[in-house]
Design a protein around this nucleic acid. Structure first.
Length: 462
RNA sequence: GGAAAGGUGGCCGAGUUGGUUUAAGGCGCACGCCUGGAAAGCGUGUGUGGGGCUCCCUCCACCGCGGGUUCAAAUCCCGCCCUUUCCGCCA
């Protein structure tokens, strides 16, 4: 959630941010006129940039009601508080007279009405507050200065690359075929017991999954200084509101029937909310956590996409990195977090690239996001394996995660929250399988994983 | 699932015959004095959110959450949530 005070005092910056996010419709008459002035660009990104040039005049549907409600709200607060102050004064007078055993019944007159009126105002205020919060919850985070402006993933910018995709002298198989041939990955039986978008790992396949989890956790705790947590994989709706999955994205989640419990879509939710409604010590920042959990996603709206294999599952394992940082250095912490996630792929020897997401491709709550994409020989392209974001104070405001210096006069401020996959286990599993296959369909196990695999050097048919 | 006890500021803790307590006191912490330095001691300050104003200041709300009674609720009544303990069930 964005700060209403910031919106009030920085209307230009707010409008520009919303334009970058694609909230200014290119179809609205006002915006059409602006586009006409700029020579009617036909490319989506150019349209967006044209509107951005005129962000002060651009029509943005969601902004006006927020500004109006803010004014209404503050007006009502003044009225309510004036009334309460008056009531308090008379109340003190009654108490004083009563103590002095003077008659005070005259003062009772009108008090009941004032009480009723106050209550009425309070109810109205509550309604406005709720409406305003709802509107603000529907507003995405403002993109950071360094985020490329664009309307979708085509505007993403490659930041850097690591490693060289291996040249294969034979026809590569994808992980589905490799896994089936080796007897370590079974989609048919998974469909029988659960359905589509589930998988069963067996034998060394299951062991590889476990090895990857332990290897990643050990690396992050021992080398990168993260503290491990093992949180619940079910959370309540408050937690999901805190990190921004609710109220807007309920259809992406699995909800337990008859309970206010949801299966977590990522460990980001329980781990970020660990410190909800807490005030942390400034000196303790940054707080760094890593967590292994299974993750559950309904994948509503992705029918037909990535139906083959492990890429997009209803349930998958992930090791997540979460940071609570001081606002002054949260972007340095984002770079470090990205490095920590990249380090895993380097240790595994898997080629990858890092992409800075454009303003139109970023997640709702994020201010800046890097995606790490690992090389998949079977698809002959890079595919997302990690997403590392700085949410600035957007989640912290929702979840009320704050910090304070030790000095008595120190002010309480919101922390910046960050997180990133470090990494998605299932996608790492398939990247290992595909990148390290040989002509006979065996899988070479990277040196770093062997201690976790009982010294095994290859996965062979079992 | 059943029973009991409890929930007050960073922590402890007073306040339950409703009314200058519209949150005492202590600890901790910060700053200052004292000291060769430190401890002790003394002094000052120290909850959160919001409105006005932004130099100061001032007002309002908040005693687990929500509702009710009343001129007036931390205090009385009702409902709910959470914690702890015991019983039952259970990996």
């Amino acid at each position: 959630m964005l700060d209403i005070k910031w919106i009030r005092t920085n209307p230009q910056a707010f409008r520009a941010a919303m334009v970058k996010r694609g909230l200014a419709s290119t179809e609205h008459p006002t915006n059409r006129q602006i586009l006409a002035k700029e020579g009617n660009p036909d490319n989506q990104d150019d349209k967006l940039k044209a509107l951005l040039k005129h962000s002060d005049e651009v029509y943005i549907e969601k902004i006006q009601p927020i500004e109006a409600l803010d004014i209404k709200r503050r007006d009502l607060i003044s009225k309510t508080e004036a009334l309460q102050a008056e009531r308090n004064t008379i109340n003190k007078e009654i108490a004083r007279k009563k103590a002095a055993k003077e008659p005070c019944e005259v003062l009772f007159a009108g008090m009941k009405e004032m009480g009723a009126k106050t209550k009425e105002f309070e109810k109205a205020l509550e309604a406005i507050d709720q409406e305003l919060t709802e509107l603000l919850m529907g507003i995405p985070n403002a993109p950071s200065e360094t985020v490329p402006v664009g309307s979708d993933e085509k505007a993403n910018v490659e930041a850097h690359k690591w490693g060289t995709p291996r040249e294969f002298s034979f026809k590569v198989l994808d992980h589905v075929d490799l896994g089936a041939n080796l007897g370590i990955l079974d989609f048919d039986r998974a469909a029988k017991i659960a359905g589509a978008r589930f998988s069963v790992l067996t034998g060394t396949g299951a062991k590889l999954e476990r090895a990857l989890i332990n290897f990643m956790l050990d690396t992050h705790t021992n080398l990168h200084g993260y503290k491990e947590v093992l949180p619940p994989v079910m959370v309540n709706s408050d937690a999901l509101k805190g990190t921004g999955q609710l109220p807007k994205f309920e259809e992406d989640l699995f909800k337990l029937q008859g309970y206010d419990y949801y299966l977590i879509p990522t460990a980001e939710v329980p781990v970020t909310n660990l410190y909800a409604r807490e005030i942390l010590k400034e000196a303790d920042l940054p707080i760094k956590h890593c967590a292994y959990t299974p993750c559950f996603r309904s994948e509503a709206g992705s029918y037909g996409r990535d139906t083959r294999g492990l890429i997009r599952q209803h349930q998958f394992d992930k090791v997540e990195l979460v940071k609570f940082a001081h606002p002054d250095n949260s972007y340095e912490e984002l770079e470090k977090l990205l490095n920590d996630a990249e380090h895993i792929l380097q240790l595994l020897g898997l080629p990858y690239r890092v992409v800075t997401l454009s303003s139109g491709d970023m997640g709702f709550s994020s201010a800046k996001t890097y995606d790490i994409e690992v090389w998949l020989p079977s698809q002959n392209c890079y595919r997302e394996i990690s997403s590392c974001s700085n949410f600035e104070d957007y989640q912290a405001r929702r979840a009320q995660i704050r910090y304070k210096g030790i000095d008595a006069k120190a002010k309480t401020s919101l922390v910046h929250t960050l997180n990133g996959s470090g990494l998605a286990i299932g996608r790492t599993w398939l990247a290992v399988i595909e990148n390290y296959q040989d002509e006979g369909g065996r899988i070479f196990i990277p040196e770093i994983l062997r201690p976790y695999m009982g010294g095994l050097s290859h996965i062979e048919k079992c």
